[in-house]
Amino acid sequence: MRILVGVKRVIDYAVKVRVRPDKKGVVTDGVKHSMNPFDEIAVEEAIRLKEKKIAKEVVALSIGPTQAQETLRTALAMGADSAIHVEVPAGELERVQPLHVSRIISKLATEGKFDLVMVGKQAIDDDCNQTAQMTAAMLDWPQATFASKVEKDGDYLKVTREIDGGLETIKVGVPAVISADLRLNEPRYATLPNIMKAKKKPIKKMKASELGVDLTPTIEVISVEDPPVRAAGIKVDDVDTLIAKLKEAGRV
């Protein structure tokens, strides 16, 4: 089995984002970026499937500017065998929608004869939570989203999913698309020798147009603004005062 795993370069989760003065997006220049944490979990799971001999090969894919290669190097240092970089200039990146990303992934999955596509359940920048589902639809493959456990079961993969009321178990035939939820695994740290080795692993570069994917946006961002600020509250000294204030407010 060959796995294609998608990794997105996003503003690091610990950075407090700031809205740009033009109100069309957030400040990205000079801001620390890293791999989308959910994608890191997807990479880890793909590598574990390889270590368990369920998968033969893991290829990482990133769509973005030159710096997306740093994100790919991280995936390679974690254990991916090779990588594909679909170059999109930084200036155009903001207009790329999950619809476009899914088209690119599905084209590459078909051309590369992959058996499994893995991605994080959502990116922590746009919080869309769409790419796995749309890729599966375009490929006409089954989907197992929000996975918290993946096991091989004969010709099928048995996947435990995190749903609103608890957990759900499904079986999907391969080829399939899986999206990783938080508790699927704890991603490993790349070791120095593996970081050195990753520098020698191949990254294939290509453009969306070479795949026949048109990146014309169908969504126009009208504005991006700061959320309303909550009025400052007060500190109380003890439980009695807390209960009295709650009674005053009619909450208890």
Binding site: L99, N129, Q133, A137, M138, Q143, D164
Partner: peptide, 23 residues
Amino acid sequence: ATAFGKSVLPRVAAKLDVSPISD
């Protein structure tokens, strides 16, 4: 925007070749 809605609607949108808008 539940686990069900988020699983199914993007799949429908992709089949219609349109961008879904989440949440």
